[in-house]
Simulated scan of single mutants.
Amino acid sequence: MGCLGNLLWFIFGGCISGLSWCLAGCLWCITIIGIPVGLQCFKFASLSFFPFGKEVSYGGGAGSLILNIIWLVVSGLPLALEHLVFGVALCITVIGIPFGLQQFKLAKLALMPFGAEIV
């Protein structure tokens, strides 16, 4: 069932959401200092392309907190708003609720990506 969910997800919007994470990663990789942040974006782009069957666990310390604050100001809010809008639009129908919940999972990840790992 996860394979079918991922296929439908990719066709009906996962491609757009994954590409936005890739765009954020490319923008961060322009500078040498931003390369670790860009690599994190590419890791989460793979989750955004195919989210079913994967979970996100949160942890981290002071370094993650500082990076999350910088991330939130620079790139986090636009990505989180994108996922939030798509999630609300998908939850309007009963069939779209599982897809909307995945968008909400990605919105939370867009707000706090550092210290998070995909399991």
Rank of each mutant, 00 (worst) to 15 (best):
G18E: 06
K105A: 14
I97Y: 03
I16M: 06
L79Q: 12
I70Y: 00
I118E: 03
I95W: 00
G13I: 01
G38R: 07
L84Y: 09
I32C: 15
L7G: 11
I95G: 05
S46F: 08
A62P: 02
I66S: 01
V88A: 14
L111I: 15
L81W: 08
I32L: 15
C15D: 09
G53I: 12
G96L: 00
F10Q: 08
C29R: 07
S64I: 02
V73G: 11
L72K: 06
C41S: 14
W21M: 10
E55Y: 09
A24T: 15
E117L: 11
T93E: 02
S20D: 10
V119Q: 10
V74A: 09
L27E: 09
W9E: 01
P98K: 00
G115K: 01
W28S: 13
G96E: 03
L111F: 13
F49W: 10
G53Y: 10
P113E: 03
L39N: 09
C26W: 08
I66C: 01
W21V: 11
L101K: 03
W9L: 07
V74E: 00
I33A: 14
A24M: 12
C41E: 05
Q103G: 06
L27V: 14
G96W: 01
I66H: 00
F104S: 12
I70L: 13
F104V: 13
L7I: 14
F12Q: 05
V74N: 01
I70H: 00
I92N: 12
A62Q: 03
L79M: 13
G96C: 02
G76F: 04
A89W: 04
L84F: 12
L81A: 14
L27Q: 14
L77W: 10
I69P: 08
V56R: 04
G38A: 03
L109G: 13
N6M: 05
K105Q: 14
F10I: 00
I11M: 01
P36Q: 13
I69M: 10
I35S: 13
F10H: 09
C22M: 11
P36V: 07
E82S: 10
I11S: 00
F86N: 12
V73R: 04
G100I: 04
P98F: 05
P113L: 01
V85Y: 07
W9Q: 08
L19W: 11
G63D: 02
V73K: 08
L4T: 13
K54Y: 15
L65Q: 02
F86W: 10
Q102F: 05
I69D: 11
A107H: 02
P36Y: 01
Y58D: 10
G76W: 02
V85F: 12
V37W: 05
I35H: 06
W21R: 11
P78T: 12
G115H: 00
G63W: 04
